[in-house]
């Protein structure tokens, strides 16, 4: 489609300033995965229900499938890649999922990690009920959620510890 309208977008992704040319209709989720190669952000339902594509927009969790990349101009995006340094050096929320066996197939996990990272910074001592509410917008078909709830509470311990160490 040669007539596809495009935009040049400047945004920050995981602390790095990026300039990308995107079709106007490209979702932020697809721009992250296809244009920037950040495939940690997963795409499930693509209409805002499953939560797999959740990223942080200026520090707050949002659905990257419900936003166009062109609307992200001037914003800071944090994806799951920005919340850890790979398998040998996981971030605190990733470590909490490892500690509590909070994942099985892992498809939904990036959306949980971005959601929980923002949540425990806002609510550093969640009850189990609050932890459930915090993840109510993310679907997991493997775990039955019990271990993800534990992971939220574990993450609330690990995030401040890591920040003290830093």
């Amino acid at each position: 489609m040669s007539s596809e309208p495009t935009s040049t977008v400047r945004l920050s992704v995981n602390g790095v300033d990026r300039t990308v040319d995107v079709p106007d209709r490209q979702l932020l989720s697809d721009a992250l995965r296809h244009t920037l190669g950040l495939t940690g952000t997963h795409v499930g339902c693509e209409h805002g229900v499953c939560g797999a594509c959740t990223v942080q927009l200026d520090g707050r969790p949002v659905r990257s499938c419900l936003m166009f990349a062109a609307s992200a101009e001037g914003h800071e995006i944090t994806t799951v890649e920005g919340l850890g340094n790979g398998p040998d050096d996981p971030g605190p929320v990733q470590q909490a999922f490892i500690d509590c066996h909070g994942l099985q197939c892992g498809f939904c996990t990036p959306g949980f990690v971005t959601t929980i990272d923002a949540y425990v910074r806002e609510n550093p001592d969640p009850s189990e009920e609050e932890a459930r509410e915090a993840i109510s917008g993310n679907l997991c078909r493997c775990t039955g959620y019990q271990n993800i709830v534990r992971s939220v509470c574990r993450a609330a311990e690990l995030v401040p510890e890591r920040e003290e160490d830093a």
Binding site: P5, D24, R25, Q26, D30, E46, S71, E73
Partner: peptide, 11 residues
């Protein structure tokens, strides 16, 4: 691409 093509304006 999920949506049909459009032009996005950001005034």
């Amino acid at each position: 691409m999920k949506p049909a093509p459009f032009t996005l304006h950001r005034p």
